[in-house]
Amino acid sequence: MTDKSLLQHIRAGEAGGPKMLYDRFAGMVCGVCRRYLSDEEDVKDAVQETFIRIFRHIADFEYRQEGGLQAWIARIAANESLKLLRAATLLPTGSLEENIEVTDEEIEDMEQLSPEELLQLVRRLPEGYRTILNLYVFEEKSHKEIAEMLGISPMTSASQYCRAKRLLLKMIEEQRAAGVH
């Protein structure tokens, strides 16, 4: 069943429609929420809120192309995850973190990790770093937009992203050196 048919199925009120939608997208929603949230209880809350909001507004969703439903659901999941995050964990910094260039070796180390392993490392990042990393990389927000969303300065956003990147690469290197991979 395509996403479009599934939508029609749900809007028609036919039995089993919501469960089918959940089965199709729950994993993806969990993946998005786990990128933002390290605590599993928070992940559960975010997932529940995401699907409640999906079913509440699914009648208003306008299907345009394949993949549009998934993108819409992913955006809701990201927003619900952000609601559970505390902006106070983002410490303002007075100066821009020095942006150290990423080396080719570090990129290769990253490529060798599985998505699940990479996700686990992202979840180990401090909450503030992780949030900005998600917004900048996955939501493709600018530092100015991130600053407005989180109530911080663009300088803080940029600095936090640099620190997140540096810390993630360090964790990748440590994991590789430990022979886990």
Binding site: A26, C30, G31, P115
Partner: peptide, 10 residues
């Protein structure tokens, strides 16, 4: 690329 669309079943 690695993490977009990653599914972790609940």
């Amino acid at each position: 690329r690695k993490l977009t669309g990653l599914s972790t079943p609940p």
